[in-house]
Amino acid sequence: MSHRSRTAGVLVISSAALVPSIGGIGVAQADPTLPASVTALLDSGSAALGSSAPAPDAPRLASIDNFRDVAGTGPGYTGLAGRHVNKGLFYRANAIVPNDADLATLTGLKLSTVFDLRTDYEVTKKPDVLPGGVTYTRLPIGAGDYTTVLSQIKSVDDSRAFMQAMNRQFVTGEDVRTQFGTMLTDMATATGPVVFHCTGGKDRTGWTSYLLLSIAGVDSKTIMDDYLLTNEYTKDSIAASLATLHRIFGDAAANMAPLVGVEPSFLQAGIDQLTADYGTVDRYLTEGLKLSPQAILALKAKLLG
Results as ranks from 00 to 15, higher is better:
Val194Met: 02
Leu245Val: 12
Thr39Ala: 09
Gln164Tyr: 03
Arg168Asn: 01
Val262Asn: 02
Asp186Val: 07
Ala301Gln: 02
Ala239Gly: 06
Lys235Met: 15
Thr172Ser: 15
Pro59Lys: 14
Gly9Pro: 13
Asp272Cys: 00
Thr178Phe: 09
Gly23Tyr: 02
Thr222Leu: 10
Lys126Thr: 09
Val12Asp: 05
Asp102Trp: 04
Ala16Met: 13
Ala95Met: 10
Asp282Arg: 07
Asp226Thr: 00
Ser155Asn: 06
Pro193Tyr: 10
Thr189Pro: 15
Gly108Phe: 07
Val156Ile: 14
Leu11Phe: 13
Thr280Lys: 00
Ile223Gln: 04
Phe249Glu: 15
Gly181Met: 01
Leu41Lys: 02
Leu106His: 11
Phe266Lys: 01
Ser241His: 02
Met187Phe: 08
Phe115Trp: 06
Ser265Asp: 14
Ile141Met: 13
Phe196Met: 11
Pro98Arg: 04
Met183Glu: 07
Gly206Ala: 11
Ser209Pro: 07
Lys300His: 15
Val129Tyr: 00
Gly261Leu: 04
Gln268Asn: 11
Val38Gln: 10
Asn255Leu: 05
Ile153Asn: 01
Pro127Arg: 04
Gly261Pro: 11
Ile153Ser: 01
Leu267Trp: 05
Lys300Val: 14
Thr78Gln: 00
Val70Asn: 06
Ala101Lys: 13
Thr7Met: 15
Ile13Thr: 15
Tyr77Val: 10
Ile296Lys: 05
Phe266Trp: 07
Ala253His: 13
Asp128Arg: 11
Asp219Ala: 08
Arg160Ser: 09
Thr230Ala: 13
Pro35His: 07
Val281Asn: 06
Lys110Cys: 07
Gly26Trp: 08
Met224Phe: 03
Gln294Cys: 13
Lys290Met: 00
Met224Ser: 05
Phe67Pro: 10
Leu130Thr: 06
Ala71Pro: 00
Ile215Trp: 03
Phe170Glu: 12
Leu274Lys: 06
Ala301Phe: 01
Phe196Asp: 02
Thr244Tyr: 02
Val195Pro: 10
Met187Leu: 13
Ala165Phe: 04
Leu289Ile: 11
Met1Thr: 08
Ile22Cys: 14
Ser63Leu: 15
Ser37Lys: 15
Thr7His: 15
Gly82Met: 07
Val156Lys: 04
Ser151Trp: 07
Ile96Thr: 12
